[in-house]
Design a protein around this nucleic acid. Structure first.
Lengths: 128, 128
DNA sequence: CGGTATCCTCAGAGATACTG
DNA sequence: CAGTATCTCTGAGGATACCG
């Protein structure tokens, strides 16, 4: 079940999230938002991503029209990835979400700490 | 590897996405953004979610301080979920992303169609 | 350099049955 | 009604090795 079973008018949300939900797409997007990059460059910038996942992720983004892939027929081969205009507009939306995150980061951490230790015992289902 | 290996200054992004990345959190949030709901109500509203996943998802949201869970000691038992203020502010950010999605939905679909059929054959790695 | 191909693992999530 | 307890399975993603 992906989008079909959403049952929401707001369901357009799923379209974004199926894209943003995976581990790497957003990281690649914000990295490319800084400047266009070559494959290896991109892999170094997005720390921890495997070669395979970078290939998979970039291809998805290209397919969705968020990134443009340009091959320069040089030796050695050179491939440049850059955000399309649409990709850039998404990057903006993402940045605002990142801003939200930074703003509420601490509050979330505090909430979790509180949840995991004290008050929970009375307020929530699992006293164990 | 979750947040640690991000290597990004923008890494606050990961904090949001680990939350938004899963299949149901966002759907629950936007549903609760409409109005507070009881458990069963919520399950009917978020079509397709299993009882277990609703429990898991709501608990995560409560833990993060995005949702407040209120138990009314009635017969039969009654539990109300509602967004906290922080949850509401996140809902706003999400809505803007949803708006982006609706705006670019068609463009994405077109891009995919183009990618999956024609031009790709010359422009991209896998001619098969 | 920028990929592809293969194998493998393990968390996320569904189905089902039971409980205070 | 609002959960909890298992059991299972799928597929996203990691590791590794090879290719044009």
């Amino acid at each position: 079940m992906t989008i079909e079973a959403c049952g929401h008018e707001d369901c357009g949300i799923r379209d974004v999230l199926d894209r943003l939900g995976d581990r790497w797409s957003v990281l690649v997007i914000v990295t490319l938002a800084q400047k266009p990059r070559r494959f290896g460059e991109l892999q170094r910038a997005v720390t921890g991503i495997s070669q395979r996942m970078l290939t998979v992720t970039t291809r998805r983004l290209v397919r969705d029209g968020l990134v443009r892939r340009t091959v320069y027929d040089t030796v050695p081969p050179q491939v440049e990835y850059r955000l399309t205009e649409m990709g850039q507009s998404l990057a903006v939306a993402i940045q605002s979400l990142a801003a939200w995150s930074r703003t509420h980061k601490d509050a979330i951490a505090d909430s979790r700490a509180a949840f995991d230790t004290a008050g929970t015992r009375e307020a929530l289902p699992f006293p164990g």
